[in-house]
């Protein structure tokens, strides 16, 4: 068990040393050379003399900005971790941006700490290059595809709308039912007068005649439904027809048959009824 643990720790140590221990040290040149706008760092820089600090600047167009990140005592001298950011390409001496904390100590005897700020752009170029031209053809671009789809969708919609309109128009023309009371009433009256009316059409004929007179006398909204037929029966023109219809359609056989010829006579004027939505009065009859 202990043997296995020992072997594992050795393997881990080897891997760790491979990963971390074998990393190459950053060359001094690369540490003193940075691109414009990037932060450069110089660690453990030994500068003899009293303690230094960054020289404050209020110039917004300063070409380099220096910051003392950390300070360590080193005997009579100090070691510094320095950070700098170059705003323009060129060579700069960092000591010019430093000053003694005690103002009476001179800075003239300091060795220069030179750094270089370089530009990533070619000489004379101050703006970045535009991105490379797309590799995909123009018609495959997103907005192009979207435009095409919109056009296709609109055309499709227009086609569907046009087709449905045509179809419904054709269907309506083919199966257009009679819309007015007159259009309904006329064939039924004709069939009743000819004696060819079907049994299932009799109720419709009667209902239409009741409706005809209800509309003509403007009873629909004025009196209760229960009184409509009573009123119609008592009306000079509508009464005989309604009563005759009643006898024909509702009386037991033998009682209603006897006056069927009179009913045909009564129905005859309705044969020439107008088919317009607002029907004029029956020809030969007075206005109600």
């Amino acid at each position: 068990m202990n043997k296995q643990m020992g072997l594992k720790s050795i393997v881990l140590a080897v891997v760790a040393s491979f990963c971390f221990g074998t990393a190459p040290a950053q060359p001094a040149e690369s540490r003193t050379r940075v691109s414009v706008g990037m932060i450069g760092k110089l660690d453990q820089v030994l500068i003899p003399g009293g303690e230094l600090e960054a020289q404050p600047t209020s110039d917004p167009l300063a070409k380099i900005v220096v910051r003392v990140a950390e300070t360590f005592r080193h005997g009579d001298a100090f070691r510094y971790n320095l950070e700098f950011t170059g705003m323009e390409p060129g060579r700069y001496d960092l000591t010019k941006s430093l000053k003694r904390k005690k103002p009476d100590e001179p800075t003239a005897n300091m060795a220069p700490i030179e750094v270089e700020v370089i530009s990533a752009l070619p000489e004379g170029k101050i703006e970045p290059s535009k991105p490379n031209a797309p590799m995909i053809p123009g018609w495959m671009l997103y907005w192009t595809k979207l435009d095409v789809l919109v056009v296709v969708w609109i055309i499709g919609l227009a086609l569907i709308w046009g087709k449905s309109k045509t179809t419904s128009k054709v269907a309506a023309q083919a199966e257009l039912p009679p819309q007015t009371l007159g259009q309904h009433l006329k064939p039924l009256v004709q069939a009743a007068c000819d004696g060819t009316i079907k049994p299932n059409q009799r109720a419709e004929l009667e209902s239409l005649l009741i409706q005809y007179w209800t509309s003509k006398l403007e009873l629909a909204n004025d009196i209760a439904p229960g009184l409509i037929l009573t009123t119609l029966k008592n009306h000079a023109e509508a009464g005989p027809l309604i009563l005759q219809m009643e006898g024909w359609l509702h009386m037991p056989v033998g009682e209603g048959m006897k006056n069927s010829a009179d009913l045909a006579t009564l129905l005859k004027p309705y044969d020439s009824i107008s088919e317009s939505p607002t029907m004029p009065s029956i020809p030969g009859k007075g206005q109600a």
Binding site: L217, M279, A288
Partner: peptide, 26 residues
């Protein structure tokens, strides 16, 4: 009143659509 209106399928549909079912007679 609408239920007791004109008889027949076609007129019934027009009644349902609210048109021409109770056309006034001049």
């Amino acid at each position: 009143r609408e239920l007791l209106g004109p008889f027949g399928d076609n007129l019934r549909h027009t009644t349902r659509n609210g048109t021409a079912a109770h056309g006034r007679v001049s």
